[in-house]
Amino acid sequence: MTAAAVREVLLAEPRGFCAGVDRAIEIVERALAKFGTPVYVRHEIVHNRHVVEGLRARGAVFVEDLAEVPPGAVLVFSAHGVSRAVQQEAQRRGFRIFDATCPLVTKVHVEVAKLRREGYEFILIGHAGHPEVEGTMGQVDDGIHLVQTLDDVAHVRPSQTERLAVVTQTTLSVDDTAEILAALRARFPGLREPKQQDICYATQNRQDAVKALARQVDVVVVVGSPSSSNTNRLRELAERLGVPAYMVEDASQLRDEWFAQAPRVGVTAGASAPEALVQGVVQRLKGLGATAVRRMAGPVETMRFPLPKGLKGMAGQARGMP
């Protein structure tokens, strides 16, 4: 077969932007509209190069160090959340602050702070160096232990186990996390778990959609950025299910040879990838011979998160492409 063997494209449902990402981008857009340029953003607002470059072109300035932000400037915290130390420094410097932290991440932060005051220590399941993990660990001064893999479970050493709780990064593999949680329960029978899992609904939905998609296609294309945790988990999941999977930031990164023996191609997107990038991939696949595009059945996400005070009541812009 050749690349022209592509006959059908199946689109995962749901895919792409989640409510937290949509809200974060809208916060930056509204801050730019209300206060003008520049608006400073601590870390990439979401992990997608196209989104970041689009906002940068409109006057957003992305920084890692708050020393780069002039006094009195408008500052937005990214969707991944920040530590208490960053929050306190921003307040000391007198910035006008808008917090775009995903409310589902904030839920984890609030739980950690509350239980730490009650004497709990924590095991945090997550990826070292990810800004969400750094923000969650930074909610307390001590007493939080990072576990990244199943092997780490045997080596974690809390100072006590009477009051021990577990929390997770919101964008992890659902299956991998369940395996780690089972091992933690076996080692620490009194472990306190969240009333609802910390892995967010959008991460769960997108992984479930890939499981359904992988059963019906010859190859999976995942649209998103390499720095995006939830996007990487989608690619890994498809591969674990025995389907070749490739992650691309946009259609320009597609390679014809991936589809030489793939009459049915599945396409999905991480939670920070605009739908316009997905459609660009679809158009490229049509150029490789696809004559049918079918959307799979899946849950319809209607979740919306409120905007911060000071940005409500303004006309928002439609998202989908920066």
Rank of each mutant, 00 (worst) to 15 (best):
A318Q: 13
V153D: 07
L234G: 08
V156P: 12
V248C: 08
Q197S: 13
K107D: 02
I25Q: 08
P103E: 02
V46M: 06
Y201Q: 11
E89V: 14
P306L: 06
V293E: 13
G280Y: 01
G36I: 11
G16S: 07
D176Y: 09
L172S: 11
T168I: 04
A113Y: 02
G298Q: 05
K107C: 06
M296E: 05
S252Q: 07
V220P: 10
V112D: 05
T171L: 09
R235H: 00
Y40H: 11
L146F: 11
D22F: 00
V41Y: 10
H47V: 13
E275R: 08
E257W: 07
R215M: 12
E134C: 00
H127F: 05
V221I: 15
N232P: 10
G242T: 13
V112H: 05
H130Q: 07
V46N: 02
A5T: 12
T161H: 07
T106H: 08
V140D: 00
F77N: 04
P70D: 04
T203S: 09
G59L: 08
Q283Y: 00
A154S: 10
V153P: 10
E236C: 04
R157G: 01
T136E: 02
R163W: 02
E118W: 00
A113D: 05
P274V: 03
V153G: 09
A33H: 08
R92C: 01
A315R: 14
P158G: 01
G135D: 03
E162K: 11
E118C: 04
F98V: 09
V52L: 09
Y120V: 01
C200A: 12
G20W: 03
Y201I: 08
N48V: 11
A57R: 15
E257S: 14
Y201R: 14
G129K: 12
P226R: 07
R284Y: 01
Q279D: 15
L104R: 15
E44R: 10
P70W: 13
K107P: 10
T171A: 06
V220I: 12
A297I: 00
D152T: 04
G138P: 07
F35H: 15
R163E: 02
Q160Y: 05
A214L: 13
G129Q: 07
A165D: 06
V221M: 06
P158L: 03
R215H: 13
T203W: 12
K34T: 05
L55R: 11
V147M: 04
W258L: 14
P71L: 15
V156Y: 12
H47G: 13
R58F: 00
L172W: 09
E64A: 14
L11D: 02
P274R: 03
A212M: 11
S159N: 04
K312E: 14
E239S: 14
Q148W: 01
T149W: 01
R185A: 14
M247I: 04
H80L: 12
D250L: 00
Q261G: 15
L237F: 06
A85F: 14
E132M: 07
V133N: 05
G16V: 03
E236R: 10
G72A: 02
A154M: 05
R84M: 12
V281Y: 02
V267K: 00
L237Q: 10
M314G: 06
E29Y: 03
E249K: 15
